[in-house]
C-alpha cells in the first residue's frame, strides 16, 4: 500500500523540525548571511525555505544564541550572523542528543530488546 505523499511529508517535517536549528548553530561558527547559509545547507541536503530560515535566525538572535552585524561594505547590505558562546554550548548539547538518538534508533532497528 502506498502511503499518502502528504502524510510522508508531514512526518518528515516533524522529524526534521529541530535539526535546522542545530545545523544553523553549527554552520554559523563561521559568520555568514541568510541566503548564503541557506545555499550551503541546501548543498548538504538540508532543505529549508528562505521564509522559514530568516525569521528563525532572528529568533535565535533574540534568544542570545546568535550575534549579528550588518555588512554594508558590499553592494547590498547583508546581516551576518555568528554563533554566540551560548549558541555554541546549545549546539554541543543538541549534537550529543542527536548522536544518542541515532545510536538508540540503530539499536532498535537491529532488533535489540531492552
Amino acid at each position: 500500500m502506498d502511503l499518502d505523499a502528504d502524510l510522508i511529508a508531514g512526518h518528515l517535517q516533524e522529524l526534521r523540525r529541530g535539526t535546522v536549528v542545530l545545523a544553523c548553530l553549527t554552520r554559523l561558527r563561521t559568520p555568514d548571511y541568510g541566503y548564503s547559509l541557506l545555499e550551503s545547507l541546501d548543498g548538504l541536503d538540508i532543505q529549508v525555505d528562505a521564509n522559514t530560515l530568516y525569521p528563525l535566525l532572528r529568533r535565535l538572535e533574540k534568544q542570545g544564541l546568535l550575534t549579528s552585524e550588518w555588512n554594508t561594505a558590499e553592494s547590498r547590505p547583508r546581516k551576518f550572523y555568528r554563533t554566540s558562546p551560548a549558541g555554541d554550548g546549545l549546539a554541543a548539547t543538541l549534537a550529543a542528543d542527536w548522536d544518542r538518538l541515532t545510536t538508540s534508533l540503530h539499536r532498535l532497528a537491529e532488533g535489540e530488546l531492552p
Binding site: Y33, R58, P77
Partner: peptide, 14 residues
Amino acid sequence: EPEIRELIEETVEA
C-alpha cells in the same frame, strides 16, 4: 524592514 528587504533581494537574485 532591512531584514525583509535583504530576504527579498536575495530571493530575487536566486
